[in-house]
Structure formats: structure tokens, C-alpha cells
Design a binder for these strands. Sequence first.
DNA 1: GTTTGGATTACT
DNA 2: GTAATCCAAACA
Length: 197
Amino acid sequence: MRIKSDFFQTDPVSAARNLIGKRIVSQKSSGIIVETEAYAVKGDEAAHTFTRSSAREFVSKYSAGTAYVYLNYGMYWLTNVLTKGPKGNGFVLLRALEPENGIHLMRNRRNGGKIKDLCSGPGKLTIAMGMSGKDHGQSFTSPQSRFWFEESHNETGIVTDTRIGITRSANLPWRFLKKNNAFVSKKKAGESSSPAS
DNA sequence: GTTTGGATTACT
DNA sequence: GTAATCCAAACA
């Protein structure tokens, strides 16, 4: 079952949590979403809408389920989904996938590497799924979309964590991970591989 | 007009 | 630990 736009007609935190375990399909590849983060238009200093007028313009111009793709650190495209609902608008950042179908295509786009590392980060998964800035403003939920989400009956075992890679509003528990999944970008804060003793 | 700081990744 | 490399905000 393809996910319809009403799935994204809610606040970004709910949508980010609900996307864990769902399938994303793009360019003849697919994967299960194992890591997301939420960014809210209101009360979130880490969101683009806090500093960028172009982001606020994007929110008013497009509807829920639209792709917000932007260039980060001058070199990597990061993929977000716009959410709009009564409790507030915002974005869900796709941070990691467990590759499923079309793995050979993902490896070609990513220039090789281990399957575990193909989509273990927002920049990597955008490349692996064949997406880039040209997809900015395209819909995930219209019938003619080049990419979409599907139900997968995999939506169990969700862990909550704080967002990573940001400075402002870094204490909000708005990062969601699939429990015990080896394909996430980094482990939950406090589960460091070399704990202090 | 110039400076600064990122929602990152790959390599040492 | 740090280089790579672009955009837009903030400052002058």
C-alpha cells in the first residue's frame, strides 16, 4: 500500500516516528526507513525555517508530503518530507535506510562500499536512492511521483533519541531509530562503542 | 563586499 | 582529527 498525503497532515514529530519501519521506493531501489529526525516550524531553533526565509516560503507554497531537498556543507543533498497539520508544520529528515531492492543500483550510485554503509546517513541515502536537488519541491504522495513511501508491516521497536549534528535546540528528543538495527547512522547517545569505565 | 557556520562524509 | 566545498545569513 502506497502512503497517501494525509499521512503527512500532522506535526513533524508524529510523522517522523510513524515513518520508522516504512518502505521508501525511488529510482528502482527501495529500503526500510530505520532512522529519522523531526524539525518543527515553531519553537525549533535548529529548523531551517528558524533562519531561512526560503524555507518559510517553501512551507507556505507546498502541501504535506512534498520533498524538501537541500545542499549541506556544500557537498551533500539531504532529503526531508514536509508535514502540515493542526498541531504544527515541519519537516522529517530521512537519516538512514536498510537497503532492500535494487542494491546493485545503490552501489553504483554510491561508488561501491558495504551494504551496511550504503544508506547509513542522510547524505548517503539521498545519493543511494538516486535523488538530489532536482527533486526539491517534488511530491512523495502524488500518483505520478518518482518516489514514494509504502506500508511494510515492519513498524515495531522504535527508540527515541536526541538529534545529532546540530547545535541549537539539541536537547529535543526528536530522533527516532529502529531498535537493534545495524543500518542506522550512529548508535543512540550513551551507547558509545568505547564507554568510559 | 566579506566573513562565518552549517540537519556530512571519507580518509588519515 | 580534518579536508572538501556551497549557500545564505549576518555584519561592515
